[in-house]
Design a protein around this nucleic acid. Structure first.
Length: 475
RNA sequence: GGCGCGGUAGCCAAGUGGUAAGGCCGAGGACUGCAAAUCCUUUAUCGCGAGUUCGAUUCUCGCCCGCGCCUCCA
């Protein structure tokens, strides 16, 4: 595939199971939707793997010259948020607002670009009701005695196309997860709730609708908000791979049956993050939040790098040694930056303005990103480029060109380097320790000097000897 | 049972029909305080068997192992 010559980003499409060029159907504005988090607790790093991959997608798209309209929702009403708020003795809004804030802080720490629109389910009840009414009117949905409304999957011939699940043998219940519950109210086991009739356990979390009090089903919000902000048809839809079925399959069914028009043109799914070779789960105690990792001394930039170090279509095995590796790798990039002149780094906007032309030795890295966001290959090419360049022997303007190319790649990745020399005051305790060490060194008391250095290390600071004394670098 | 993915050096992870990027760790060297930081060098025949081929890690088939989804889930 002559990807690079075509000058576009080629990305795997889940629907066709093949790579195709990402393009904007309208006005050079790429309109895309990402399924966001359910705000009932702190997002874990598995969630963030998906959001980081989507961020990489957006950066590469924009660096390649396309403007974007990025919509990512917040699910603030569902079983978990309702249960959580009741348990916490808070109103749903207060409860979810708290976790929304937390999510935003984490996103910012990880260097994620803010979506242009971040709609929440609760703020779009009317649009969801309208969608249900339309589906009822067109005969794709039916009401049940308990005030719920279900989508009839048999009325959508293409149901199962995305996940390649055809006739689902539900009678065997092979997964043994099919429960009887309220299934009697559905015509078919595969039908799913568009609207859930009010139940006692929902507390006061219900809304009025033409079918009585209740709340929207989970799949409905995305369909409604896609339509609200991107229209019936748009360029790309993304989420974690577990959403392929049933969530995205159901969104497709709802949206297409309601509008009669195509839905998303391109489907972008991100594989899961594994921890120590297995699935993350609370019971195994291997489910980490960003805070868990920063508390262990790993900067968010390091976490981001680690999350980018595997290809998005491959499960990524997350371990603490992968964080150590990420930290060291960033240190290496920092050295390269220093050799290229250091100083203020070009911003993301600077890199957008620069564009992707004449990247010199860094071109291979850029091309790897354009070929299905091959981040590991791109990182490999980045380090190879650094190694090849005779940084010390460069003339001034050559250095400037290389520097802007280097930063074009880093900004496309969203990789941040710690700012050596511009570090805000380290804690006094740390400075005192470093000063003690310097005095010990000057007195040639190596044993004490090393003892102090070790203490600094344990506190998360690297001390480096320079002619003027020392530099402190957070690890 | 259905659908799908993967098995590459101590760890992580790309890749190609012609004998394998990169990062981490380890080792050796330079520098140094026989230190740290930094720099240089260095570490694999690609799960098993068969087939196709002049030649396969890369294609085909079979097997073994691991993983994900099959209506909570990024």
């Amino acid at each position: 595939m002559s990807d690079a010559k075509e000058n576009g980003l080629f990305l795997q499409d889940t629907m066709s199971r093949s790579k195709s060029k990402v393009f904007a159907e309208k006005e050079d504005l790429l309109r895309f939707y990402c399924c966001g988090p359910t705000v009932y607790g702190a997002a874990h790093i598995g969630n963030f793997r998906t959001f980081v991959a989507q961020d990489l997608f957006r950066r590469v798209t924009e660096c390649n010259g396309l403007k974007t309209l990025h919509v990512r929702n917040l699910t603030d009403v569902d079983d978990k948020t309702i249960r959580g708020s009741i348990k916490a003795g808070q109103g749903l809004k207060k409860f979810t607002d708290h976790w929304k804030d937390r999510f935003h802080n984490d996103c910012s720490a990880l260097g994620l670009l803010k979506p242009h629109v971040e709609p929440s389910a609760v703020a779009h009840i009317a649009q969801q009701i309208q969608l249900v009414e339309n589906l009822l009117k067109l005969g794709h949905a039916y009401t049940s005695e308990d005030g719920s409304v279900y989508f009839r999957i048999s009325s959508f011939g293409e149901y199962g196309k995305l996940s390649k699940l055809k006739s689902r043998d539900l009678s065997t219940g092979a997964s043994r997860r099919t429960t009887v519950d309220d299934e009697y109210s559905k015509e078919s086991l595969g039908d799913f709730a568009l609207w859930k009739g009010r139940r006692p356990e929902d507390g006061d979390n219900f809304w009025e609708s033409p079918w009585g009090q209740g709340r929207p089903g989970w799949h409905l919000e995305c369909s409604a908000m896609c339509r609200e902000y991107l229209g019936d048809s748009f360029d790309l839809h993304s989420g974690g791979e577990d959403l392929v079925f049933p969530h995205h399959e159901n969104e497709i069914a709802q949206s297409i049956c309601s509008s009669g028009k195509p839905f998303a043109r391109h489907w972008f799914h991100i594989a899961h993050l594994m921890v120590d070779g297995g699935k993350m789960s609370k019971s195994l105690g291997n489910m980490y939040t960003l805070d868990d990792l920063t508390n262990k001394g790993y900067a968010p930039e390091v976490v981001r790098y680690a999350l980018l170090s595997g290809h998005y279509r491959q499960p990524l095995n997350f371990t603490f040694s992968s964080l150590e590796a990420a930290r060291s790798a960033i240190g290496k990039l920092l050295q390269a930056n220093n050799l290229l002149g250091g100083g203020d780094s070009p911003s993301y906007e600077d890199s957008l303005a620069r564009g992707s032309s004449e990247l010199g030795p860094f071109n291979a890295s850029w091309e790897a990103l354009l070929d299905d966001l091959n981040a590991p290959k791109a990182l490999g090419a980045l380090f190879s480029a650094i190694k090849k360049i005779d940084l010390a022997g460069l003339m001034g303007n050559e250095k400037d060109n290389l520097r802007s190319s280097f930063w074009f790649i880093l900004n496309a990745f969203g990789i941040c380097l710690p700012k050596v020399g511009a570090i805000k005051d380290p804690p006094t305790k740390i400075k005192v320790l470093a000063e003690k060490r310097l005095q010990a060194r000057l007195a040639k008391n190596w044993a004490d000097a090393d003892k102090h250095r070790e203490k600094l290390n344990e506190a998360g600071w690297l001390v480096r000897d320079v002619p003027s004394g020392f530099e402190l670098i957070p690890k």
